[in-house]
Design a protein around this nucleic acid. Structure first.
Lengths: 202, 202
DNA sequence: GTCTATATCGGGATAGAC
DNA sequence: GTCTATCCCGATATAGAC
């Protein structure tokens, strides 16, 4: 007798295999550059199963981002201590980025393309920038951060943390260097120093 | 009698119309998200003319980037004065970005997507990052810049200048602010200050 | 739930008239 | 040089067998 749990596990395995294949391929070639056929081949399942389990290619993408949405919804920072808050923000972002490399990359692609799917993904990035703005404004009003324009300041920090990981297209620029170790904690400390200096709060 | 110049002008107009339509649409929806049909509709010409004049959709993209390649090939900086060089680099990049918003945006999309066309576009971005690295290393060896890792330092400056223009996906974050003026010179000065502070060279 | 086979659409490129 | 009509391919989604 096949019990219900086994059936659910099987289903979960197939859905999971599709999700993982999609994550890998979307990150490598973009949402539009990846076909459902490729995803199913990579996952080793039949073409029809994306529509069956997720309801289509778009909804597969949204399913991929559900855990990320939950993560960002839980964030909070203590605005009474803006320097600590900013450090925590950067450490958290960089660590999450290193742990979820592919998802963050897909998100950035979708932002860059101003994709029609972006509205459905807004929970995955919107809260971060709202928090960042609040931290920077709190720091300015308390005199620990110095900048003239909140808009430029947010862009400044955002640009730095978004490029907090080595980008493949810069590889030729550093081809002569020995491959450096590359871990989240180290990257975060470098970035924190550069950003805090930038905001004049060292 | 139709002289040769008239014929050439007509041809140039059609090619120009296609180039402008393609630039607009690629920037708005990405290379893969834009169809040749849309480009020709926008340009008001027949579908076949993209293949006829440019040899295909890919080559149309490459044609779009020729002037940009020429611009970046001409850059040079005086490494004897790293602070001036870095300021000139940032001013030049930001100004060019404001003047060529769409092309730079398309380039960033292609970089993000790691598109198969990126190799053909490398002349459009590779020289910038090589220059930046040289400026930063010169400044470090002369003691005017302070950073631990050249890789992180290049990423730092690159991230900041790439996000040197207001990104549409941040609009909801600043929806409450009055629309700020947004010009290249002002943006460059803000960024220069943040970056030089970050590198401890104020 | 999973598969194969297929329907349907939209893509880029091109043939051939003008 | 420019146009229309068409070819051919590859995409997503689905029908229907198992």
């Amino acid at each position: 007798m096949v019990n219900e749990e086994q059936v659910q596990n099987q289903e979960k395995d197939v859905k999971q295999k599709i999700l993982e294949a999609a994550k890998k391929l979307f990150a490598g070639k973009g949402f539009e550059g990846t076909s459902v056929r490729e995803i199913c081949d990579e996952a080793g399942v039949a073409l029809a199963l994306v529509s069956y389990h997720f309801g289509g290619k778009d909804k597969l993408l949204y399913a991929l981002f559900e855990p990320l949405n939950e993560h960002f919804a839980k964030l909070s920072f203590n605005l009474a201590e803006p320097i600590n808050a900013l450090e925590a923000f950067i450490r958290g972002f960089v660590a999450y980025r290193y742990d979820n490399e592919e998802l963050i990359h897909i998100l950035q692609q979708e932002m860059m393309m101003q994709s029609p799917r972006l509205k459905m993904l807004s929970n995955a990035y919107y809260p971060s920038w709202v928090h960042l703005r609040a931290i920077l404004e709190a720091g300015k009003s308390q005199g620990v951060f110095q900048f003239e324009s909140i808009v430029y300041a947010v862009h400044f920090v955002m640009g730095v943390v978004i490029f907090s990981r080595q980008n493949p297209f810069l590889e030729p620029v550093f081809g002569d260097l020995p491959p450096a170790e590359d871990n989240a904690a180290q990257a975060a400390e470098h970035i924190i120093r550069l950003v805090l200096n930038g905001l004049h709060s060292s």
